[in-house]
Nucleic acid binder design. Sequence first.
DNA 1: CCTCTCATGTGTGCACCGCTTACATTCTCT
DNA 2: AGAGAATGTAAGCGGTGCACACATGAGAGG
Lengths: 202, 202
Amino acid sequence: MPQTTAYHHGDLRAACLRAARELLEEDGSAALSMRAVARRAGVSPAAPYRHFPEREALVSAVAAEGYRELTEHLAAVHPAPAAPDEIAAVAVAYVRFALDHPALFRAMFAEPCDPDNEERVAATAAIAEYVRDIARRAFPGADPDALWTSVWALVHGLAFLHLDGKFDTSTPDAVADQVRTAVLALFTAAPALSQAADTQPR
Amino acid sequence: MPQTTAYHHGDLRAACLRAARELLEEDGSAALSMRAVARRAGVSPAAPYRHFPEREALVSAVAAEGYRELTEHLAAVHPAPAAPDEIAAVAVAYVRFALDHPALFRAMFAEPCDPDNEERVAATAAIAEYVRDIARRAFPGADPDALWTSVWALVHGLAFLHLDGKFDTSTPDAVADQVRTAVLALFTAAPALSQAADTQPR
DNA sequence: CCTCTCATGTGTGCACCGCTTACATTCTCT
DNA sequence: AGAGAATGTAAGCGGTGCACACATGAGAGG
């Protein structure tokens, strides 16, 4: 039957997200255009606008998806890391994710995120909470704020600088070793960290 | 004289860079278009292509300029930091630069940098060298590699997460305190860092 | 001084983009 | 079954990157 209607797509929103992800992985964020997404979904150029009022909204939705996947990816390594090596393993997974999905990772962090997209802020809040929990578990007594920000920043910075080719990424093992080393070192300094946080109040 | 020739601009390349910087600061990287640059320089849309074969080349040139300015900015705080507080002060300046020039900082780091643009790689090499020197000075005996990468990553991550609004950036002092705290803590851990680097060879 | 040459700027055009508006189709709900 | 909302299409506007042929004028060689 040629006329199996097909006027309505079924789940165009999901199809758009899938197409966007594919375009992102294939040709980078420049290739992620509304029209290209529409083409790939087999739909008219204006159709995606029914589900994403503007390009920015599509990108934000993709980024939110990325945040959730990253969180799952980390949790899969260890659901509740506490010991330094467990935490270091999670850090390695973070950098690994960035290197495995460079365009997605950039979409998540590289462009200014709009504070209005609630899906996106929810997803980022979730990952921030995950990191904060790690700090809480690893250092029950300490003020977690000074810890989790430092840990996240270190790992995030490692991910980005690796992504930008500033460090050697030739072999996965070299990357993993470097990340592990840096994170473990930071954790040996943790007592000094929370102490410093006490010293200069707020 | 209306006809002071003016057919040739004089120094269009510099004018384009200036215009690009202005557009970047005013309206973000999306506003940085070849045509907008041409308009602002008072020149035809195709003229900038005589100096930058493609948009990417213009962006790379702006980024290289940014790298050089950042390096100067850091060196101005302290030309040869060695003590922890001096280094922490430089770290604060790094984050400050990112927050003061968000679009420029993003242009420098957020998009995949092409390894072919030699101006850009030279500028990044210079800043990497500056950071490496810091590590060397601060820890003369130690293997500097494990140090400078960690320090840079921590600071870079702090800059980016602040830029993305993941941390509190309401007052400059709060930002500075957080950066100082994190960096100082990492430096107290430096012995452990180089020791770990020795333990797991390469 | 005059001409030749070439770097540099102009004009035009193509394909693509984001986004809007008016219209067509289908789903859903009563 | 009919109304109205949801979701698709068609057409069009202004902007963009980039390629091409052409115009201009500054500097080198006679």
